[in-house]
């Protein structure tokens, strides 16, 4: 293993879960999400000597998001019968409900809206940074976010609401 590979492995192990989840939020597809995360890590490794002391995670995130945004023309597939990790039964039920709600509402958004929602509200990036990372204007980020949130509101009650209603 070359010098720096150990650091990269440590970085990859720490970053993988979030990268894969972000990709899942953008695609609704676990298989594609893992592929995208792997692609992002390959490209991050290829630039590792340059970015290791900078913002490696930010670099990997930008690679991931751009990779998925540029791949918008490929059909998105949904995998409704996904595996769930071993958890307590109640937790599993809650997560399944939340995941279904999330998949449904994110599925109503365009690829760009999904990307903006994930960058803004999952990664908590400011609008200006979202604009830079997607090579679009801040105005477009604002208007698209607003449109996306309108769609979310129109999509109906959240899982949390459903759970409260069942109690």
């Amino acid at each position: 293993m070359a010098r720096g590979d150990g650091e990269f492995v440590e970085f990859a192990q720490a970053a993988t879960a979030r990268l894969v989840h972000a990709a899942f939020l953008m695609t609704g597809d676990h298989h594609r999400a893992e592929d995208a995360a792997q692609t992002a890590l390959v490209r991050t490794y290829a630039s590792w000597s340059r970015i290791r002391d900078d913002d490696a995670y930010g670099y990997a995130r930008r690679v991931l998001v751009n990779h998925l945004v540029d791949g918008w023309r490929r059909p998105l597939r949904e995998y409704p019968t996904e595996e769930v990790p071993e958890q307590r039964r109640d937790d599993v039920a809650d997560e399944v409900v939340t995941r279904r709600w999330l998949t449904a509402i994110l599925g109503a958004l365009s690829p760009r809206e999904r990307a903006i929602v994930v960058l803004r509200y999952y990664f908590d990036l400011p609008e200006a940074q979202v604009a830079r990372e997607l090579a679009i204007s801040v105005g477009t980020v604002k208007s698209t976010s607003s449109r996306a949130l309108e769609k979310l509101r129109a999509a109906g009650p959240s899982a949390a609401d459903n759970q409260e209603a069942r109690r």
């Binding site: 879960a17 894969v20 989840h21 990790p85 997560e95 999330l102 994930v118 509200y121 899982a159």
Partner: peptide
């Protein structure tokens, strides 16, 4: 919801 549905790293 986005955070609650995070899973352990594949």
């Amino acid at each position: 919801a986005m955070r609650a549905t995070e899973r352990s790293a594949p």
